[in-house]
Nucleic acid binder design. Sequence first.
RNA 1: GGCGCGGUAACAAAGCGGUUAUGUAGGGGCCUGCAAAGCCUUUUAGGCCGGUUCGACUCCGGCCCGCGCCUCCA
Length: 469
Amino acid sequence: MLRIHNSLTGQAEPFEPLVPGQVRMYVCGITVYDYLHLGHMRMFVVFDVVRRYLRHAGYAVTFVRNITDIDDKIIRRAAQNGEPIGELTARYIAAMDADAARLGVERPDIEPRATDYVPQILALIARLIERGHAYVAASGDVLYSVASFPAYGRLSGKRLADLRAGARVEVEESKRDPLDFVLWKRSKPGEPTWESPWGAGRPGWHIECSAMSTALLGEYFDIHGGGMDLKFPHHENEIAQSCGASGHPFVKLWMHNGFVNVDDEKMSKSLGNFFTVRDILPRLRHPEVLRYFLVGSHYRGPIHYALLQLEQADAALDRLYTALRDLPLAAPPAGRSIYRQRFEAAMDDDFNTAEAVAVLQTLAREINTLRAAGKLPQAAAWAAEFRALAGLLGIAQLDPGEWFRLSLPGEGAPLAGPSDAQVEEKIRARLAARKAKDFAASDRLREELAAQGVLLEDQPGGLTTWRRK
RNA sequence: GGCGCGGUAACAAAGCGGUUAUGUAGGGGCCUGCAAAGCCUUUUAGGCCGGUUCGACUCCGGCCCGCGCCUCCA
């Protein structure tokens, strides 16, 4: 039985979809004005795993992740670049897709863009005004009246009085309440605008997610996710908007992933301590290393980014691929094997991927032990099981031979080592030397390759395998 | 100040009221021509102080420390 921690109740709850057999989930994506940083990628990977596992559990999953393609930061960046907004967002959407693909993140079923949903946004705002949850301020902006929604603050555990007391928001004269937020923004000259009953303007940030999720998944759906930093105010505001408009609940289960920290601080743009995926990938043997690092800890806790962590992820993956190496294709063991049961038990416990990875490591040892005992068919069967389970996390999906031929880049540029063919040739020469019991020559060849980052491993059958370090 | 999260061994990171987490790193052994890999084994744990209990890293209370949100942010 799958249990998921619900941010709304603060507890793990048995997962039961609203419509049996179907899961509708919406995840807040990113604002496209720059490259993905590690924090974004964590969110992508976390919900990619959630989606994969729900599908594995037998649900038909509809996964929506939006793209915010209009907001202040985009407008500002486009102006800085002297670039049309559409070009800027198209560029970063393409970059986002490419980065996500390299990490093995599957495309969402639907990737709505805010600018494509302006009619729905306008309809939603009209409804909110009609129901007394929104008003047109003197400034011309349309604002949400927080006081009209008594449940405001429930998700984030905040009380209105506390929020008002600590309000650092500049109190605009036109706001009835300092906590009221913008639904429709009166546009300034030169900014992108859409016509509306309240004058030319553009959507506020929060309203787009209410409009898009409702349009695509209905007024009440199963899972809504995003980074922990969206809990307040973004998700709180979404609830106020959607429930205010519909008069009934909006989302059954809220999921929030933890931050990526650097030196114990949240990775963020304002602190300047962020690393983009494009900064990191060139330092890795393969993007999978980053994915392994991300699934190596529980999604709700913080994760500490450091190069040392990536090196450890690389070593751990190396071990997994070593277990998988040179085994014939085989069918997995019949039924729910003990490892499958342990893996699923871990995942059923609020997606405990750290535990699930530990199960895979233990399974790798089982495979190694069977192989050493000469029980290749059994080892191959477990390897097949391993692949299936690891696929749910999106790790260890390469051909092992391919993995071992990849080199670990140094600082910046990849090592310029010998080609595969050159390695093979030296191995042949060494093999001849070994046959002639000329171990001095044999060892010399091995050392030459070692100096070039190639490690040789003499297998029992007289075969020599190699790997780049 | 309000709300919330966390402090586990050399580095990461989980579960669990009593039994080996797991990976990396270190020691020893087996295997190997020697290695590597693998397997076996092993050293370093649970912020501090109390309480509950036959027994607590694991439950309860207090304290200390760190972090996050309360403002755009995955």
